[in-house]
């Protein structure tokens, strides 16, 4: 790569996968950018500048464009997150059923003061998010690509305890 950019890069196998993505879309379109960023985030946990440059190069577009897209969407992380990241719904239906309390409990339980902060052991982080579209099960959180419903403090504690033996992809 011509310009030195900070952070980890993804292995060549992932770059290969990224090069294949545009075939799914209209010729000449940029639709592959988000699926490509997904692959990077799955691999590294967040989008490093260096990896975004890899995406840009593989898709033959400007790195600034890639970052512009990445920064628009809240599911892309431009900063590191914990190995286990909790997205806790805090929109109205969940708030009416105790989402604030869940968030406070979760922060305490994983030992962070702020949303986005990573726990000292590098394992956990969390953020409040807008309506997750599962309001009949409020309060709700999303964690490792799954929803968890009818949250209680005890249910949150259980998730955290179980997580201590898991890898980044959530598998045991």
């Amino acid at each position: 790569m011509s310009v030195e950019r900070a952070g980890e890069t993804v292995p060549e196998t992932v770059v290969e996968e990224i090069r294949e993505l545009p075939k799914r879309f209209q010729p000449g379109s940029r639709s592959a950018v988000m699926p490509a960023l997904d692959l990077v985030q799955e691999e590294l946990g967040y989008l490093t500048p260096a990896a975004m440059s890899q995406v840009a190069e593989a898709l033959e577009i400007d790195p600034g464009y890639v970052e512009g897209v990445a920064s628009f969407y809240s599911l892309f992380h431009l900063e590191p997150v914990g190995k286990h990241h909790f997205y806790v719904c805090n929109n109205l239906s969940c708030q009416l059923r105790g989402a604030e309390e869940i968030l406070t409990h979760l922060k305490d339980a994983i030992g962070v003061g702020e949303y986005g902060e990573i726990s000292q052991d590098g394992l956990f982080s969390c953020e409040p998010v807008e309506c997750l579209g599962a309001c009949e099960y409020a309060p709700v959180l999303r964690y490792h690509h799954r929803f968890h419903y009818d949250l209680t403090d005890a249910a949150v504690d259980k998730l955290i305890a179980a997580a201590r033996g898991k890898r980044r992809d959530g598998k045991d």
Partner: peptide, 12 residues
């Protein structure tokens, strides 16, 4: 895309 707060029917 179902993101309107309070709406979960498309998911269902």
């Amino acid at each position: 895309d179902e993101s309107e707060p309070g709406t979960a029917k498309d998911r269902y």
